[in-house]
Amino acid sequence: MRILYDPSPRATEDIFSASAKEKFFSTYDVIAWNGEDRDDFYRRHLPETEVLISQQPMERDRLDLAPKLRAIVNVETNFLPNVDYEACFQRGVHVIAPSSVFAAPVAEMAVGMALSLARGIHASHGDFLNGEELYGLDGNHTAELLAGSDVGFVGFGDLGRATHKLLAGFNPTVRAFDPWLPEGVLSRLGVIPASLDDVLSKSRFVFVVATITTENAHLLNAEKLGLMQQGAKLLLLSRAAVADFAALAEAAASGRILVATDVFPEEPVAKDDPIRKIPNILFSAHRAGALTSALENIGNYVLEDLGQIARGLPPVACKRAERETVMRIRSKPIDKS
């Protein structure tokens, strides 16, 4: 099976273990882009390409050069608006991405941050370093239990479900808002279907794990954040654009809610960005999913689905672009610069 391989901005060493890399290059006829003129490279090799591993634009003019194409694999893991998806659907070309590899590591970070907000772990550590620690009950005057609490999810895809699974031992009451899922599906997944207002107003912990779409930019604005309970915790772990960061910072600065975030509107965050000095925010530098094991699973998932495609079967490890939703997704491309 002929594969045109252009994983940039990912590096081969990041997404394939040594053994997976050897299997990939020894099993398939791989034509790798090595820095030459891309347009010329694609013009020369697309006519014989059966699988394209690339994040480069694939509009109709390029697709027309690839009559044998069976799948496009995006190892950057986002579905970007640079593909003629409708043409792919019409031609039976799978467009897939191994995005679920990040669900488990991000979910672990989500639970860890929730516990830190609930029990003041990060704040009390700082107090101790500064010689300002409070012992016993005095050090727990704002603490609360995650166990048995009311938890809400904004979005309930792979990340929401992975986080929900980790929370099971805490026996919370869980509500979820996801406009792309019917209530019956949410109920069968073990959560209470709820409106966004109910999730925000009834939860002590709100996990924001929705992808960014054409409908939900700044979904969590000042009005919606105002529905949250005094002292409630909001954890932002998916896409920064879902929240109005100015409103989020204001709500945290007032002390009305506590916030944890792993994502930001612009990254890296400027050294003089005022958000760095906002109290009641637990910061993480977009590192929740950035583990070697997660990145190498990209290669593992790709190999699994290449095997499927080679046998004339549909891909099952990676997430497939869906006609009804893919052009509504607005994820930013990763920046490896």
Rank of each mutant, 00 (worst) to 15 (best):
F153T: 00
V259L: 11
P268V: 04
L295S: 02
G126R: 14
I275C: 04
P315Y: 03
S100Y: 08
R256E: 06
S17C: 08
P9C: 01
I309Y: 14
D39G: 12
A260G: 11
A66R: 02
V263Y: 08
S54I: 00
T173Q: 12
C318R: 00
D178C: 09
A246L: 09
M113W: 13
L306K: 05
V302P: 03
G139L: 14
A260K: 02
V316C: 09
P265A: 07
W180I: 05
H164C: 10
F16T: 00
R119G: 12
K23V: 13
M113D: 11
S238E: 09
Q308P: 01
V191D: 03
V206H: 06
R330C: 10
H125Q: 13
F264P: 08
A310R: 02
G169F: 02
L137T: 07
S17V: 00
G136P: 14
P314F: 15
H122I: 00
A194D: 04
D335P: 00
H164P: 03
F170S: 10
R320W: 02
R60M: 02
V174D: 05
L313K: 14
S17N: 10
K271S: 11
D158E: 14
E48K: 11
E48T: 12
E86Y: 09
S99V: 05
Q229Y: 10
K336Y: 14
A97M: 07
E59G: 05
G136S: 12
V51P: 01
E304L: 11
A18G: 10
V269K: 03
G155F: 08
D197E: 15
I278M: 04
I53C: 00
K233E: 09
I334H: 07
